[in-house]
Every structure is written in C-alpha cells, then in structure tokens.
Design a protein around this nucleic acid. Structure first.
Length: 623
DNA sequence: AATGTTGACGCCCTCTGCTGGCCAACA
DNA sequence: ATGTTGGCCAGCAGAGGGCGTCAACATT
C-alpha cells in the first residue's frame, strides 16, 4: 500500500465563520480547549493527569465539564488534590498571549523553559502538622513540592524548539520528535508489524495498525448502539450520528455536514469539480465510487444480482431491492386481472399473467363487433350505445362518451389555452421534485472570486421553467426525449442536440444545448408558427363565407359535406384513416408543401389510432 | 535526556443506499 | 402520438476504516 502524503497545509475549502475549526474530529465547539495562532485547537493530547488517562469518552466529556465547572468556581482552590484539575483549567483557558508571550529568560532555567519571568508561588500547606512548601506554576496553576518537577513542567509552556530539521524548516522541542519527523523525510519506518509487511514510523502507529487489522481490538464503545472502534476520535464522530450534530455548513446552500470531508465533497456540486476521470471514455465524476461503479459498465462481465422471485437480473443491488419492492411486495388487496378477473398477490405475477392475454380482447361489445382490451374501454364504448356522454371538457363544456375522446379534444382544441388535461395518474400528480432541477438550483459560483453568477442562475431558472416545452406549439412534455419525438413527428424537425454523453463530458454544456436548440428552432420556424385553432377557423370561414356566412360546426365536418375543401396537414395517412376521416378527401391531391406548412396543423389533430374503427365513431358524434 | 505511550488532528478511502434522469418496451 | 413502467446509470450523502503526523505526558 502506497504511503500517502499529508496535504493538510493546503485548504481548498472555505468554511463559514461560525465554524472555528476545520477538523472533523472536534467534539464540541463550545469546549474551551486552547487555541493556536491559526485559531485551531492545538494538536496532540490535551493536558491530562496520568490518573485520568483513560480511553473513556465520558471521562473526556466529564473533564471538559470539570473545566467549565472550575471556571465558575473561585480561584482559591489550589489544593494539592485539585492541582491537576486546576492545571487543566488553566490550560484550557490559556490564550495565545498568555501562553506564548514570554518575557526575559530566567537565568536558572534551561533553554527550553519559558522566557517570561514566571513567579514560583510558594504556598504553605498544613499537612499532618508539617509545613510543606508548595511550588506553583504561574502559567497554569500546576503545583508541586519538587522544584525539578516544576522546572520540567515549565518546558511544556515553552515555544522554544531547538531541534531543527535538516530537510525542512520545521523544528521540535525534543530529539525524538525530530527523529520521527526526519524519518518521514527519509521513509524510515523502524516499527515492523509482525503479522504483515507493514511498517511504521512510531510504535503508536504500529499498535493502532495491529488493532485495526489483526487483533480487531476496539476499546471505544458507543453505549447507545454498541458500535466499537479503535480510536476515540472515531467514536466521537460516530456519536454525532446519534446527536445529529452537523457543525460544518455549506456557504452556498443549506447543506450541513457532520465532518469536513463530507462538506468538501459536497462543495463539488457548486464548483463543478470532477476529480475522477474514466480512463476509457474520459467521463468525469465527483466521487471515486461513482467512477468505480461506472467502470463496471465498461467490463465485459458485469455484476449481476438475480431476483429470487423471478428470472430478472439486476446490475446493482439497490436496483434489485427496488425491483423486489415494486414487483414482489404483497398487496394488501389482491390485484385483479382486468381481462379475466383472476386475482394475483403481487404486481409481477399479475403482469406475467397479463401476457397470457396478449392479443386477446376479452371485453366484447354485445351490440356490435367492437371488442376492447380493458373493461374501462368497453365501458366507454358502451356509452355510445347508451347515448351518454359523461366526460365534460372543463374549457368549453363539450361532452364526450369516452375518456380518450376528451383527452384528444383537449389536446387538439385547447392546447394553447390554459386548460390542463386532468389526470388521476399518481405518476404525474405526485411526481417528486426532480433531482436535476434541484441541481440546477444550486448556486454556481466562481470559487476564486466568490461571486455568484446571477445571470447563469436566472438562465438556469428560466431553462427549468421552459424545460421540455415545444417552442413551436408551446406544448409541454415530461422529458427531453418526448419533446424530441414530438418535434420530429409533429413539426418534422429533427434535432439531435441533446446528446447526454456530450453533455456529461462537458463537450456541450447546458447553455450550448438550449441556446443552440432555441436559436435553430426559432430560425426555422420564424414564419411558421401559426395558431392551429385560428387557422382552422380562418380556413373554414373562407370556405363557408359564400354559403352561410357561418363556420361549419363539428357535426357538419364529420358528416362529410362534399363542398368542404379539405385541410391538408400530413404527408401520409393510412388508408384506413383516409376512409375514416371522410372530410379529408382531397388530401392526396395536395402537393404544395408550403401551403401545408402555412397551415401547419398538427397531425395529431386528425390522425386516429391505427385500429379500423373510424375516428368519428369513437368520437361519439355518429348518432 | 532519551524513550515510550497516548490522544488528537487531518486526510483520504470504501461501502452503502437513496434519488432521479434516460431509454426502450409496452399500453 | 403520447403516457407509463421497469431497468440502467450517474449523482450524491451517510457512515465508517485506515493511516500519517504531531503534541503532551509518562517512564526509563
């Protein structure tokens, strides 16, 4: 395993002001541990008495509580019993100035001692009748009766680092620190693991490694859930999953992270950074695992997750889970086949059963030769025999016998109006907010300048508003594919601009796609966008001005008045449809394409389904 | 003074799981 | 012609493992 190089000096992440530290291990921002000149907590173990050196996280918290409690107490409790706590208290509250701003070096002290004159306080303590002289550190209230111990202790307050590294600018208080550091330059790792080939710079690293990899000893356990880990800092990080603490806020959105890594990773959605690149197709990813999953798509042998309930095989575990939940979850009510009324426990068996009806039309009309695939279709058909029209257009009040007829009417006649086709489909009405939209709403910023691109945001918002709307007829679609298909089929305009791969590889960006598409469509259709409804009426008015000064009503059209000039709209219509749509008689004679385009009437206005039943039959106006 | 131990900080990695867009088949 | 659905895939966040490094303190 390659040795990683620490890059902690380079911080690419900007943090909000409220977050004092960029450390992902900080337990509590309110804890008043000492801070360094960088405004961070000092590295290393917080001052702690030997007795209190346990791995217990609670004790760690208790220690901080003790510190806080001591803050509230008066300062006269410098008894020997409280010496350590007092030391901790002072350490906890010492500031940059109080710790590092030393004055002259007392002559008696070694080079490593603090340079400011530290008064050694002497306190008389009555102990079993004997008078003992107590020596007290003026920096942290550490007390001892031994002078050499106090002197040794004072070294901890020193900033002097006499041991300089020959390979870099760093210096250290002790030679062992220097030795360890130099070993990092030289790659010397004297501590070899006896279970594997790993070796480490310090014994501590080796011990930790052995715990992680070999003994699996996990001394730190979460009392709430039993999670155990090798390192205390990991337990603290874990505890945040219980408390929900997320101290690291994204400056660009509402996201908050429990640690710096996740925030840094999250920030890529704002910066657009994609550090992980596929070596095969050059597609880039924001996360390493996305790349890893992507690489599987290039493999000849892809992973497979077979469903245990059916022959389906999924490429991902999560997809299998989704498949099982959707297809094989038992329904509270049995699902009935609408062709034979047989009941089925889940969606999958119903679907498989449905294939047995392939080509069958179970629901036959008793009055005519009509047969339907569903009972609903037959029911709608029967309305025509009954003479009932239960489906009303909310826009014009027109009544229809069948749902499909109403839908077709709304599509044809009220497309440009505010009328919406009312659907009960939960897939439409309860559609979840789409991820891409949320992504577009992210505020893109220039990280170097920190300036938000308002114009881009506005464009993106507008783009979202206009998503999948046909620029010719303004009809809205649920996907780019449907819109593409619509513009190709209805408006005879093919544009394959939306190439997802190009888009994702940044060869074409969102702006390119939409700007180009919009421009091209605008140019092509500048003079061709004619309101269909108006043109129909206009044309009809012309045709009938001489006769009745009235536009024909729908029944007249469908009855097929010989005098009505036909409205050419489409290049090809099935012969069945030509027969069905009686009023389109002269269609084949129409050759003037420009005329067709001038009228530009949507094919769907007239083309019926491919079945042999005439459209006007279905429309229910035939009597 | 030298050495050892322990804990903290920081970074990166992987695994996991959910979400939503896209596509093709089907209705 | 269009809507719906299931599978595939990328995006992205939650959680945890592992290790390099440094500092404080204890022991020899």
């Amino acid at each position: 395993m390659a040795t990683r190089t620490s890059t902690r000096s380079t911080k690419a992440v900007k943090f909000v002001d409220s977050v004092e530290s960029d450390d992902d291990e900080v337990l509590d921002k309110s804890s008043s541990l000492p801070i360094t000149t960088e405004g961070k907590k000092p590295r290393g173990r917080p001052p702690k008495s030997r007795r209190s050196q346990t791995n217990d996280d609670d004790e760690w918290d208790a220690r901080n509580e003790q510190i806080d409690d001591d803050d509230d107490d008066n300062d006269d409790g410098n008894t020997s019993d409280h010496g350590r706590d007092v030391t901790k208290k002072i350490l906890a509250n010492r500031t940059i100035d109080s710790v590092y701003d030393f004055g002259e070096t007392p002559r008696k002290w070694s080079k490593a001692t603090p340079q400011r004159n530290s008064t050694i306080s002497k306190t008389s303590v009555s102990d079993s009748g004997k008078s003992m002289e107590k020596l007290m550190c003026s920096y942290c209230n550490y007390t001892t009766t031994k002078k050499y111990l106090l002197q040794r202790h004072l070294k901890s307050h020193s900033t002097e680092r006499p041991h300089k590294c020959a390979y870099c600018d760093r210096s250290f208080k002790t030679t062992i620190q220097l030795t360890n550091h130099v070993n990092t330059h030289l790659g010397v790792k004297p501590f070899q693991c006896k279970f594997c080939s790993f070796s480490f710079t310090t014994s501590g690293e080796l011990i930790r490694h052995v715990r992680y990899k070999h003994t699996l000893e996990k001394p730190h356990r979460c009392e709430e859930c039993g999670y155990a880990t090798v390192e205390l800092s990991k337990l603290r990080r874990h505890i945040r999953t219980h408390t929900g603490e997320k101290p690291y806020a994204c400056p660009h959105c509402s996201y908050c992270s429990p640690d710096t890594f996740k925030l840094k990773r999250h920030l890529r959605v704002h910066t657009g950074e994609r550090p992980y690149q596929c070596t095969i197709c050059n597609f880039r990813f924001t996360q390493s695992n996305s790349l890893k999953a992507h690489m599987l798509t290039h493999q000849a042998e892809k992973p497979s997750f077979p469903c245990s309930y059916c022959p389906s095989v999924m490429a991902r575990k999560s997809d299998l889970r989704y498949h099982v939940s959707k297809q094989h979850s038992r329904q509270s009510e049995p699902l009935a086949c609408n062709k034979c009324d047989e009941d089925f426990p889940d969606k999958y068996t119903l679907r498989m059963h449905g294939k047995t009806h392939k080509g069958q039309t179970i629901h036959s009309c008793t009055h005519c030769e009509f047969s339907a695939n569903t009972s609903q279709q037959l029911d709608d058909h029967m309305n025509k025999h009954r003479g009932t029209r239960p489906f009303q257009c909310s826009e014009c009040g027109l009544m229809f016998a069948a749902r499909a007829d109403l839908r077709a009417h709304v599509t044809r006649t009220h497309r440009n109006a505010s009328t919406t086709i009312i659907t009960n489909s939960p897939a439409i009405n309860n559609r979840r907010p789409q991820r891409r939209v949320a992504s577009l709403q992210h505020r893109y910023i220039d990280v170097s300048s920190g300036i938000e691109d308002d114009e881009q945001q506005q464009h993106q918002q507008q783009q979202h508003d206009d998503d999948y709307r046909c620029s010719i007829c303004q009809r809205q679609f649920t996907s780019a594919r449907l819109l593409d298909r619509h513009t190709y089929v209805v408006h005879e305009q093919k544009h394959d601009l939306y190439d997802e791969r190009d888009y994702q590889t940044n060869e074409i960006n969102d702006d390119d796609i939409h700007d180009y598409a919009d421009d091209e469509l605008e140019e092509k259709n500048e003079n061709k966008i004619i309101n269909k409804h108006e043109n129909i009426i206009e044309r009809m008015d012309e045709d009938y001005d001489d006769e009745e000064d009235l536009a024909p009503n729908v029944e007249d059209i469908i009855e097929g008045d010989e005098d009505i000039e036909q409205i050419p709209t489409i290049k090809s219509v099935s012969s069945a449809n030509k027969k069905q749509i009686g009023y389109i008689r002269k269609f084949d004679e129409q050759e003037d394409l420009s005329d067709k385009r001038k009228l530009n009437i949507d094919r769907s206005s007239f083309k019926s389904n491919d079945d042999e039943k005439p459209d006007f039959d279905v429309f229910g106006f035939d009597g």
